[in-house]
Design a protein around this nucleic acid. Structure first.
Lengths: 188, 188
DNA sequence: TTCATTTTTTAACATTTGTAAAAAGCCACG
DNA sequence: CGTGGCTTTTTACAAATGTTAAAAAATGAA
């Protein structure tokens, strides 16, 4: 569980005791490519650390499906909306490869938060880190054209791109696949 | 400090003791319209509760300035990027009216987080609430056209719109002011 | 390899949005 | 009042992106 362990430690430094409290709650699961691990409209009671594999989160509009997140080794699969509000979320998360994950029930996590300051701060840090990532994606999208963001993506996640169909990447960049093809033809 | 108090309590229920620990750190400040309370590229060491007034956050691109957040009574002014990473942020926050604010030094907050589980959980809840708001804005922007989002804005924040120049709103919606004018002409 | 399926690119045309500049509307101040 | 400055709308044209459809290329299984 190398990737998961590093991910947990990387969020906020934990003493051995508290780390073990958290690890004790993890359960290994293996799931196939194509599996819908989070379903829009359904209350979700777990989060998952990605030990191996790739996933994407999407929302369905009236006549389109938009990918807004990709996750890989060391990332966390979580419907924050569902988790925080304790109501069904609007996003679905689909595994794009066969994955090995570590499941953590949000109820167990809540208990740990209320009983240990260190773990409450770990949880705070987790929310904060996801928040700034989300904010950066949001802001990047605001004022960078799709072409520039595609180039950014090529530089920051060259390996990720190779593991994901182009249609999903176009959706993620906010353009149609045709436009992404034009962009690729242009920068070649 | 009615608005600020409600804002703090609304984030996460606090016992009187812990609430007072937080309130003790607040300092009232009055600042004029046009004041830049957060500056891009500068390390910020405070956050502010808006007791009265309106503010906007923006980022500067190569040849444009984009507004991505509006705040009013009960909202919190905070460069999350600067606060979490302890590095200069990329956004500026400008007061659009004369404002009465309550300032809170992030250093004081950090100390409270490390000494009281309740306050650590308050901080976690704060990050989580801002996170889902950000995520909702992000996702809403992804699959709703500007016209639809303008109508949403009219419904959810009719008062806010009246307090803000149209140019900022166009920027917030991700279109030019000309396009927003066209939208307004169309839905009239 | 070969065939079938999926993914990606190309093309032609329609639509949307942007740009720049002018006109109209609004407001504060003398 | 009236003038000047600021905001908002309108116009005409240009550029970017979407739509639809088809061709080309890549992929994977037998």
């Amino acid at each position: 569980m190398q990737n998961t362990l590093e991910s947990i430690k990387g969020i906020y430094p934990l003493k051995e005791v508290h780390l073990n409290l958290l690890l004790k709650e993890l359960k290994e699961v293996e799931l196939p490519k194509g599996h819908l691990i989070i379903r829009a409209g359904k209350l979700e009671r777990s989060l998952y650390f990605i030990e191996n594999g790739v996933a994407r989160a999407y929302v369905d509009g009236k006549d389109n499906r938009i990918t807004f997140w990709f996750g890989m080794e060391g990332d966390i699969i979580l419907s924050y909306h569902s988790y925080i509000n304790n109501t069904p979320g609007y996003e679905s998360i689909e595994l794009l490869e066969n994955c090995r994950l570590y499941e953590l029930k949000t109820e167990a996590l809540e208990t740990l938060y209320n009983t240990h300051t260190e773990l409450a701060n770990w949880g705070r840090k987790l929310a904060e880190l996801i928040l700034i990532k989300t904010e950066e994606s949001y802001i990047g999208r605001l004022f960078k054209p799709a072409k520039e963001r595609y180039i950014d993506l090529l530089q920051t996640d060259p390996l990720l791109i190779q593991r994901i169909p182009l249609g999903h990447i176009a959706s993620y960049l906010g353009v149609t696949q045709v436009t992404l093809s034009r962009i690729r033809a242009e920068i070649k």
